[in-house]
Design a protein around this nucleic acid. Structure first.
Lengths: 255, 255
DNA sequence: CGCCCTCTTGAAATTGTTCAATAGAGGTGG
DNA sequence: CCACCTCTATTGAACAATTTCAAGAGGGCG
């Protein structure tokens, strides 16, 4: 069989995905049939609204590593992630990079106040997204304040997460950062109905390092240390078993 | 005269303010007469709406150092800063602290998705705020989507700032952090129509350190170094002259 | 006038980085 | 199907930036 999972992509995703399988029913964008709608900002919409927003959206498939947009690009679109994982990041001129977030199914991205994106986005695994033209979506939002409210709610959540991340970056040790990271991914997977205990880490050590403000070496060493202490187990296929979750939580929260 | 500026409070603010001077006209909350309205989320409101929101708001005066709320408190209110500077921060159980932002005139705070605040807020200088009951404001927002849009716009801005801060915390050197900080404060003061060149730093070295993910010692040393290099001048009353702004910008952006 | 607190400065210690080499895993092509 | 090649991850040792510990200076307030 040639259709294995690729190991780096791990338990769930291949390096590429078939481009946008047209649905049996044959609608251009079957938002009503969207399997992940209740995870997204589209959740509060009803039948007619789903039809309307379906007219505004197109689908998009990215292979592992594909850029979605770069900092400074005209911010023409916003996106919903429907499958896979992306990373968003900022760069300094000399190449230093800060990953500001990992996004997966249900996450929304691309909101920008200025004319251009303030950060870059790139696929970590093969991914699928819905794309909306910003102008058109703005129009839709003006008529659907409940969706705008939902967006505000999201933004507010993201803000809280960003503050948590600032605490991590400004004040936590390497070990605490790794522990926090593992628990974050675990919780998020669970929220999405996925498996939170063997946690799936689709991203490279470099991505993790750039997210946690460390180097790959430190990330690697810290994983090893946690493994040695029996707090985690490193399984094949980018899976991590949280052998002693309470211990991990104590480390993460500096209790 | 006993009515000096206190040195730590600097050029603009005393350690305390007279409690809420009632306006000449005598309205309970004269939002229509609010001098800083166009800096706030209330900007898009018209006469009738201002009257309505005025019914929902009360004023609040804080002395330098007063807490506004603490992480974990029931999130019953949201606030607009009308005068002075506040800091918002998160704590780890062992006392490590991360200041996630400094807020001043026109800034909005207190938005929380959960039942409780996810961070603490405290006055850096004497300050005045408008306070809204969250529930009441929610009702108002439901009827005033343009204000909700404005809030989303704000949140989106804050998110962009948070990402910038993550880049700073995760990837910049001490010198770059200080340079970025000075320029941030300078720009913000200018946006508010204040004086951006001798920048006013109302907060303590400890607050700056906790904002930049450094120690007070490193902050102090770095200021000294920038002074020695002729990039800045440290003036009395917590003022900093940006002697060579371009140089500072190059340092901040790692050009 | 003197105490207290914040800020500055100095020296030693530490965490995490940098540089360098080895190991592991997957994909490729013979 | 296996050997090879490449890329990523791991491990080790030296180094560096920042922190920690400690002391002194400056300034306001009582």
């Amino acid at each position: 069989m040639r259709d294995h999972m690729t190991p780096s992509a791990g338990a769930k995703s291949a390096t590429t995905l078939k481009p946008a399988e047209p649905r049996p029913g044959g609608k251009p964008s079957g938002c009503a049939a969207c399997a992940v709608r209740n995870l997204t900002v589209c959740a509060p919409l009803d039948g007619g609204e789903l039809l309307a927003i379906g007219q505004l959206s197109t689908h998009l498939t990215l292979a592992c590593g594909d850029p979605l947009f770069a900092e400074g690009d005209p911010a023409a679109h916003v996106f919903n992630v429907t499958e896979g994982t992306l990373k968003v990041f900022k760069l300094l001129p000399d190449g230093r990079r800060q990953v500001t977030g990992f996004l997966s199914t249900g996450d929304f991205l691309g909101l920008a106040n200025g004319e251009t994106y303030a950060y870059s986005a790139e696929a970590v695994t093969a991914a699928r997204l819905c794309r909306f033209q910003r102008r058109k979506l703005d129009g839709f939002l003006a008529e659907h304040p409940e969706m705008e409210r939902r967006l505000l709610h999201r933004a507010s959540n993201e803000l809280a997460e960003a503050q948590e991340q600032m605490l991590l970056l400004g004040r936590k040790t390497a070990k605490e950062r790794i522990a926090s990271f593992l628990l974050l991914l675990s919780r998020r997977a669970e929220q999405r109905g996925g498996t939170g205990d063997p946690v799936f880490l689709p991203m490279s050590r470099t991505d993790i390092a750039d997210y946690l403000g460390l180097t790959t070496e430190t990330v690697s060493r810290t994983f090893t240390r946690l493994k040695t202490e029996g707090v985690i187990q490193l399984l094949p296929n980018s899976l991590v078993r949280l052998a002693r979750r309470e211990a991990l939580a104590e480390i993460a929260e500096a209790l």
